[in-house]
Nucleic acid binder design. Structure first.
Lengths: 226, 226
DNA sequence: GGGCGTCTTAATTTTCCCTTAAGAATCGCG
DNA sequence: CGCGATTCTTAAGGGAAAATTAAGACGCCC
């Protein structure tokens, strides 16, 4: 089976445990980000897209439960795997109630962790998980569909690729070069306004100020509605 | 006797029990998914196809009865084997009333479980084994037939395989590669439009927008009727 | 071996997407 | 305020992907 590279967020304040986790996951080819408290975690999850979150419950500043709760109330359905201490069985129940997808009791075996990750992603793959939410917009990478205000919007391949990239990191400015490369690979296609045309179509199909132009540089999907 | 590989969903929140169950079933070559609460179970059953469900009654978030009830009201006839505690005899009655196919009292013997599974599948084999419903369409895997609007439609082997796969995960885009492989195995049959032709026949025999084309990628049976 | 149903191939048509191009609008800067 | 540069907008052409059709190949059952 072809292994997939995932974008994983680990939220864990125990440094040695976190380090081991991150190292193990990176060795599997995943992109791993580590944060050590709930506030930062929630921020990151609001502004960027992850394929999976591994979340410790006992966190400084904002505990894991609260993070999970807020995450789900934001309609964010990123799969969450919870880490709990051995004795806190009722934590497990509460976590699942709040929308966690799985849990793991500390200390755990890396083998088991990996198995859980596989299971979790297999499970969520068939369904519409890893939807991407942005403002009142939902992207379904699985079905190549976009829903905006309850309506289905049909995007072409190029349009979808662009939008997917732009809103997967709101607030991040993508240069024209980067976006062109995303579509065309490394072929050098100098003079062409194809990109502008695609952006134009996107704005027309969804809403005009979805993508903001940074003159002379590129485009960005803004982080917040001003 | 040739053993059949089944796709089994285990819904059980008692971890150690569930683990044992899953391990035992996997050792028999089955594909096993484990979920730990009713909501997730119902979701999975709505979006994917299983050959058998092993369902605990005492589940968090949504109890086994409710899952079963909803399942049947959705016209889903996947065989269900219920797990109940020793003393809850009336549970058994209610469960069978609701459309369970068998029950098993905890704690149980794995040998017995397997026997029940065999019996259950043998029994349901005579009937319409796990018919598949999709929109106003019913698929009967063993007869290769499809009923659409009270009418029988005869599908050929290829057509049936394709349709079966597509609607077993509504909303999931199947790439041309995946579908070709489904039919032809690993032989490399490069240029051929056989797939398009089969899709064409399916649309003609049933209804045209049953399968949506994702240009440049593949095909999908959409999740909702828009 | 003939006939039937099914699958594949092949040729043609249709559809749809991407790009191009050219003029209009907008922005930034002097 | 005006000019050049950049981006927007629009429409049309080319081209690739898919749909459609028909015919031939294949396998299977009698």
């Amino acid at each position: 089976m072809k292994e997939i590279q995932l974008r994983i967020l680990v939220v864990e304040d125990d440094v040695s445990l976190a380090d081991g986790l991150v190292t193990a996951l990176k060795r599997d080819g995943h992109t791993v980000d580590l944060l050590q408290d709930g506030i930062h975690a929630l921020e990151a999850l609001t502004n960027e897209r992850f394929d999976l979150v591994i979340l410790d419950l006992g966190l400084p500043r904002l505990d894991g439960f609260s993070v999970l709760k807020q995450l789900r109330s934001n309609k964010n359905s990123t799969p969450v795997l919870i880490l709990t201490a051995r004795d806190a069985i009722e934590d497990k129940v509460e976590g699942l109630d709040l929308g966690a997808d799985d849990y793991l009791v500390k200390p755990f075996d890396v083998i088991e962790l990996k198995a859980r990750i596989r299971a979790l992603l297999r499970r969520s793959n068939g369904r519409s998980v890893s939807e991407i939410h942005y403002r009142n917009l939902t992207l379904f990478p699985e079905s190549h569909k976009v829903v905006y205000q309850e309506k289905d919007i049909n995007l072409t391949r190029r349009e979808f690729t662009l939008l997917h990239e732009l809103i997967s990191q709101p607030g991040h400015v993508y240069t024209r070069d980067v976006l062109l490369q995303l579509i065309y690979g490394w072929e050098d296609n100098v003079d062409s306004n194809a990109l502008e045309v695609h952006i134009h179509h996107l704005r027309k199909k969804i809403f005009p100020d979805l993508i903001r132009t940074i003159r002379g540089i590129g485009y960005v999907a803004d982080k917040k509605v001003e």
